[in-house]
């Protein structure tokens, strides 16, 4: 049973991560390679909050998400006007720096040893979430909430502007919109949502170290998004399910763990290429990559 809960929790976490990536990548045409960095900052901040303060889940989550959002400004402001390749490079640089800081700033992050003994988050200050089934419910609820917010965002006038930016940036600015500002906000929201996945992760595994938040992880999150498809909620759920369940299938196939681990990368790569070839919009997406 715990295995099933584990799968559900991880699908929830990756659904949130894929939705978060979908805002800049799927709506605003910003290919972000820093998603794992925000996920990691969120997880470390959550560990800090859970270890030091006795605050309930939702306010804790909110504080972590907003704080992480501010980190996104480092990229937004560094790649002035968030133009194509500059943005990609700035986000890549940020991802590498964040990993390096998590790995080397041992006084604060304990470096490669990671942070252990993270206490469980608490609902309304009295219900401690310890059992896996409770976490599964929390994970699904947060994924559902994020899906709802994302759906609302896409349908809203704000989402309409992001989609038009994706289609033709110049035409948006000559209709009186500050495109730069819209992109900053989109990226801020993305960082905040990613951080909430970090919160779930830290509270669930109770031990975090920098290796969960590498550039590979950023690419992994984008793979979930591309396999599922850009622009909507469906695609993110499908993509998250595929990348979480695929490696488990390998294990069921009876492959020894060390071979399965190596095969995983290959399988993801193949899955990505096959999907791009046969489903250019992803398995359930709205739009093509630009």
């Amino acid at each position: 049973m715990d295995f099933l809960y584990h799968i559900i929790i991880m699908i929830g976490i990756y659904t949130i991560l894929a939705l978060a990536a979908n805002i800049p990548v799927g709506l605003a045409n910003l290919l972000s390679l820093a998603q794992a960095a925000f996920y990691g900052i969120g997880a470390y901040l959550s560990a800090f909050v859970l270890l030091n303060f006795n605050i309930p889940l939702l306010p804790g989550l909110f504080v972590v998400a907003i704080t992480t959002g501010f980190f996104s400004l480092l990229i937004s402001l560094a790649s002035i006007r968030l133009k194509g390749d500059y943005f990609i490079l700035a986000a890549l640089g940020f991802q590498l720096i964040v990993f390096s800081v998590l790995y080397n700033w041992t006084d604060v992050t304990k470096g490669p040893y990671g942070i252990s003994g993270i206490p469980p988050p608490r609902l309304f200050a009295f219900i401690e979430l310890t059992a896996n089934f409770q976490f599964a419910i929390l994970s699904v609820s947060l994924a559902a909430l994020t899906s709802f917010l994302f759906y609302y965002l896409v349908k809203s006038p704000f989402g309409r502007v992001l989609k038009s930016i994706r289609s033709d940036e110049l035409s948006v600015s000559i209709s009186g919109r500050n495109v730069y500002q819209f992109k900053i906000i989109a990226f801020f929201l993305s960082a905040g949502f990613s951080a909430s996945a970090g919160f779930l992760f830290a509270g669930y595994v109770k031990y975090i170290d920098p290796t969960s938040f590498t550039l590979d992880e950023s690419i992994f999150i984008l793979s979930a998004l591309f396999i599922g498809g850009l622009g909507n909620v469906k695609g993110c759920i499908v993509g998250a399910a595929v990348i979480v369940i695929l490696p488990e299938l390998l294990r069921f196939a009876g492959l020894p763990d060390n071979i399965a681990a190596n095969l995983r990368q290959i399988i993801y790569g193949l899955a990505l290429i096959l999907v791009m070839l046969y489903f250019p919009k992803g398995l359930a997406g709205d739009t093509m990559l630009k």
Binding site: Y152, S156, P157, F158, R160, S167, V172, S175, T287
Partner: peptide, 26 residues
Amino acid sequence: FEELSILDNMVIGAIHHANEIPFYNL
């Protein structure tokens, strides 16, 4: 805006307004 509906294309033609703040409609 090719991917947007014809109506959305028209509506986007109106100058920026508070409605376009994220979650404003929520």
